[in-house]
């Protein structure tokens, strides 16, 4: 697979390590009433869809940026690559 890095251009997926569903960006509030339930779901449960999947890849052997890659889990086709930082900010995270 080739991941089209937003800053560096097309890179071999071998340079990256995979973390999983991009929902992992949104860590629950540890002070919430139901924080324990929220953290259980956050840590252990996954949508795991067959088809389009937004997921976190880390450019470990490159510029060490985190990316959100939109990839089809049935065909391995990559349709979109964004910097995880930009995604997190656009979804309301300040840091």
């Amino acid at each position: 697979m080739i991941i089209n890095h937003p800053l560096l251009g097309p890179r071999d997926a071998q340079e990256f390590t995979y973390l999983g569903d991009a929902a992992l960006i949104h860590r629950p509030d540890w002070q919430a009433e139901d924080a324990q339930d929220q953290f259980h779901d956050y840590l252990y449960l996954r949508d795991n869809p067959a088809g389009e999947h937004r997921e976190l890849w880390f450019h470990e052997s490159g510029d060490r940026s985190w990316l959100v890659v939109t990839r089809n889990t049935v065909t391995h086709e990559i349709s979109k690559v964004e910097l995880a930082r930009d995604v997190a900010r656009s979804e309301g995270r300040s840091r």
Binding site: G20, Y44, L45, R46, D47, N48, P49, A50
Partner: peptide
């Protein structure tokens, strides 16, 4: 995961 999502379940599985 595909099958159990039809029952509204999310699993600790990838």
């Amino acid at each position: 995961s595909r099958l159990m999502s039809k029952a509204g379940m999310r699993l600790p599985i990838e």
